[in-house]
Amino acid sequence: MSLFHAVVQLDHQKAQVLQFDADHVVAEKIKAHSHHTKQHGSAVRSEHEFFAEVCAALDGITEVLITGSSTAQADFRHYLEKHRPHQVKQVVGYETVDHPTEKQLIALARQYFLKHDRMAGVPTPT
Rank of each mutant, 00 (worst) to 15 (best):
S46A: 14
K14T: 15
F20M: 11
A27T: 14
V64I: 15
V64P: 02
E28F: 02
D21F: 12
H12Q: 13
Q19T: 12
V44Q: 13
A22C: 04
Q16F: 02
A22F: 06
E47H: 09
R45F: 07
K14L: 08
D59A: 12
S34N: 09
R45S: 10
G41R: 01
Q13F: 10
S42Q: 09
Q9G: 05
K29E: 14
F20V: 13
E53L: 08
F20A: 12
V17Q: 05
V44K: 12
V26G: 05
L18G: 08
E47Y: 06
I61M: 10
Q16H: 14
Q19M: 14
F50Y: 13
V26M: 11
E63Y: 15
K31H: 11
R45H: 09
H12F: 14
S42G: 00
E28V: 07
Q13Y: 10
V17W: 01
D11K: 05
R45V: 06
H35E: 12
F51M: 07
Q9S: 14
I61Q: 05
Q16N: 09
Q9W: 10
E63I: 09
V64R: 04
Q19H: 12
H12L: 13
K29F: 06
H33S: 09
S42A: 13
A32S: 14
A56G: 07
L10I: 14
F50K: 01
Q9E: 15
V17S: 07
Q16M: 12
Q9F: 12
D11G: 10
A32Y: 05
G41C: 03
V17N: 07
H24N: 13
V26R: 14
E53W: 01
H35P: 02
A52V: 03
F50E: 03
D21G: 12
S34D: 11
E28D: 14
E49F: 01
I30Q: 00
A6K: 02
V64D: 06
A43V: 10
H35C: 03
